[in-house]
């Protein structure tokens, strides 16, 4: 395993100084990532996926659990010892243009990892090589981020991420804000590089269609917990957790006549300040039973982890609302 995270919790403190309340942003998350694997973290906003990514990256300190990367505990290591590990782990942030320093040229942006880690190299040559690797011509080196389209900026981000041959790339919403015709380009590029460089990737996204095509395994997060984890294909075929099933059914498809069998959920997501008792999804679950309100289910299973007392099986009839268009 290249990365193992075990029972990770992230706590934020909110409120005025005389009444600080702890809230759990990430609540006991565990998973492993194998070399060369693409792992997807899926969830809606506020589900804690970005916080978790920052915790893995060491930008966010964790309050419990451990994160092991390449055999080293990165949650307890000092900033000084963390620096060499950062060469092996690259992070791509959500906003393609916003994650590039606005007053730096593309050439300098791509060369930055070399400067930070004081790596002796022919920087000009390396930048050109990296830019051509992501399909940008050498003239781009002189441009500023605001002169790039979203897709081009994303490519620059990718070039910078792979600059030092990392083992793991964490990509937060790599296709967010990109046009449909460009999303494929970026995903194909990441996939080519993954094959060529034997990269492991963690992709964080709310776009399930993207997950379907790129991820080997996926984990669905709800209120900072993983509710279901397993092989992507089998989860798309037969979601077991009601929340996964609802998310999959809520995915509008570009087919006007396709009958949409939808699981409609009450729109109100509980606040992290007042987590529901028992199963935290019970306030919105269409299959809720009395046990769900008191007992908290824990993930179990070897291949598929499901945190649910009454998981769905493939033949189950869904309590759906037929929408006709």
């Amino acid at each position: 395993m290249i990365l193992s995270i075990n029972n990770v919790e992230v706590t934020f403190r909110v409120g005025p100084w005389f009444n600080r309340q702890p809230i759990l942003g990430v609540a006991g998350v565990s998973f492993d990532v194998a070399p060369g694997e693409t792992f997807a973290l899926v969830g809606e906003s506020g589900s804690g996926k970005t916080t978790l990514a920052n915790a893995i990256n060491g930008l966010q300190s964790i309050s419990n659990g451990d994160v092991t990367f390449l055999g080293e505990r990165i949650d307890t290591t000092s900033q000084r010892n963390m620096k060499p590990l950062r060469q092996q782990m690259a992070m791509m942030f959500q906003d393609p243009v916003g994650s590039l320093s606005p007053r730096m040229r593309v050439g300098d942006l791509v060369a930055e990892p070399f400067h930070i880690h004081k790596i002796k190299a022919n920087i000009k040559e390396e930048t050109e090589r990296l830019l051509s690797l992501v399909g940008l011509s050498g003239d781009f080196a002189n441009r500023y981020p605001h002169q790039l389209s979203g897709g081009q900026a994303r490519r620059v981000g990718v070039a910078r991420a792979i600059a030092l041959n990392p083992k793991l790339i964490i990509a937060d919403e790599p296709t967010a804000g990109l046009d449909v015709s460009v999303q494929g380009e970026v995903l194909n590029l990441l996939n080519d590089l993954r094959e060529r460089m034997d990269l492991a990737m963690i992709i964080i996204t709310h776009n399930l269609h993207v997950v379907h095509h790129v991820a080997d395994r996926m984990a669905v997060m709800y209120l900072g917990r993983i509710v279901e984890l397993g092989e992507t294909e089998s989860m798309f075929r037969a979601p077991a957790h009601p929340y996964t099933a609802a998310l999959l059914s809520a995915n509008p498809e570009p087919d006007p006549d396709k009958a949409k069998e939808r699981i409609s959920l009450p729109a109100e997501v509980p606040s992290l300040l007042a987590r529901p008792s028992g199963c935290e999804f019970h306030t919105r679950c269409p299959w809720v039973q009395s046990r769900c309100k008191s007992d908290q289910p824990f993930a179990n299973g070897e291949v598929r982890n499901i945190a649910c007392h009454y998981p769905l099986s493939p033949g189950d009839k869904l309590p759906v609302k037929q929408s006709s268009i």
Partner: peptide, 15 residues
């Protein structure tokens, strides 16, 4: 985000 990105690459405070 570009500051977080620099931090994630290991850039020090001065840089």
């Amino acid at each position: 985000q570009f500051v977080s990105a620099a931090q994630s690459m290991g850039a020090g405070t001065t840089r």
